[in-house]
């Protein structure tokens, strides 16, 4: 599934300042809860409080208006759309907001569980093991030309490529620097990293083992056995059962989803991928060195 992360979003403001009647407490709560459950961000604007600045964002302002709220209009907002919700139940407000967003050419949220690695740069040593390990091009490097070593800085570049519920890359990180905030357990979920976490087997997956050792061998052997059994016995259910058993064991050990295990390439392909990553880093280093040797860019370089 292709996930689009650059659609236009409107900022929703539940306005209860001058020129509007405050909502009844229960209705306010239900309205906020409903909009948040639908994936919207909502600002509750009320007298005397401070919220994030308008900053030229397009706004959908909902409220029980008695007059047009002048203080929002004067606060530097972009396009403003006002919707009077005086006679709307909380559920109706959700529908109205969705319709208004569509009418404004905006994107209604939802459809993707935001699952992707978040790097703790206070822990990251830039070893690039995650870059080499990830099969889905989630990681990249940036700032190669500014790096004296020409290595660049590891970054997360394609969040939407990440396989939902797969924390595998965090397990190859020797410093526990990769978080998945929606993961169930610490320190992968962002909890404090303790010394015992770094020692824990569940946090330490030796990448060399993954590149041809225990896990992969076990998977291949089991898959091969299952295939042989299937071809000799012609018993599809037995083969599937064996496959499920194998995947379940691996999944339990490392919390890696079936989908990811099913897409594991051969050990040779993974090694080839690591080799290409190393060569790419070398080429970047050489280019960076060439640029440094050449000195600063002159007007002549730009054809001026």
């Amino acid at each position: 599934m292709s996930v689009k992360l650059d659609g236009k979003r409107l900022r929703i403001v539940l306005y209860e300042g001058d020129g509007a009647e405050p909502l009844e407490p229960q209705r306010r709560f239900e309205t906020l809860l409903g909009l948040l459950e639908d994936g919207h961000s909502v600002t509750r604007a009320a007298p005397g409080g401070t919220v994030a600045s308008a900053d030229r964002a397009d706004h959908l302002v909902i409220g029980q208006f008695t007059d047009k709220p002048a203080d929002i209009a004067a606060n530097g907002a972009g396009v403003l759309r006002f919707v009077d919700i005086s006679d709307c139940a909380a559920d109706d407000i959700r529908g109205t907001v969705a319709s208004e967003i569509s009418a404004a050419g905006g994107e209604n949220p939802g459809g993707w569980k935001p699952w992707f690695p978040v790097i703790d740069y206070e822990r990251c040593t830039n070893c690039l093991q995650c870059l080499t390990f990830c099969l889905f091009d989630v990681y990249g490097v940036e700032g190669v030309s500014q790096d004296p070593e020409g290595k660049g800085q590891i970054t997360v570049q394609k969040e939407a490529n990440c396989k939902i519920d797969c924390p595998a890359c965090s397990r190859v990180c020797p410093e526990a620097a990769i978080m998945f905030p929606k993961y169930k357990k610490g320190p992968i979920n962002g909890d404090v990293v303790r010394a015992e976490d770094l020692e824990s087997e569940s946090m330490k997956v030796d990448i060399s083992a993954l590149l041809g050792g225990d896990i992969y061998s076990a998977l291949r052997t089991r898959q091969k056995d299952a295939r042989q059994r299937f071809s000799t016995e012609r018993d599809e259910s037995k083969a599937l059962l064996e496959r499920k058993r194998c995947l379940k064991k691996l999944q339990k050990q490392f919390d890696i989803p079936d989908e990811v295990l099913m897409t594991l390439p051969s050990a040779g392909k993974i090694e080839e991928r690591a080799r290409r990553a190393r060569e790419k880093a070398e080429r970047r280093k050489e280019r960076s060195q060439t640029m440094r040797d050449r000195g600063p860019v002159t007007e002549e370089d730009w054809g001026i």
Partner: peptide, 19 residues
């Protein structure tokens, strides 16, 4: 919601960060 203060509520910080 019941306190009367103004505040910002986001559906999901992770999603905003990814975007």
């Amino acid at each position: 919601s019941g306190s009367g203060i103004a505040f910002d509520a986001v559906a999901d910080l992770c999603e905003l960060s990814a975007r």
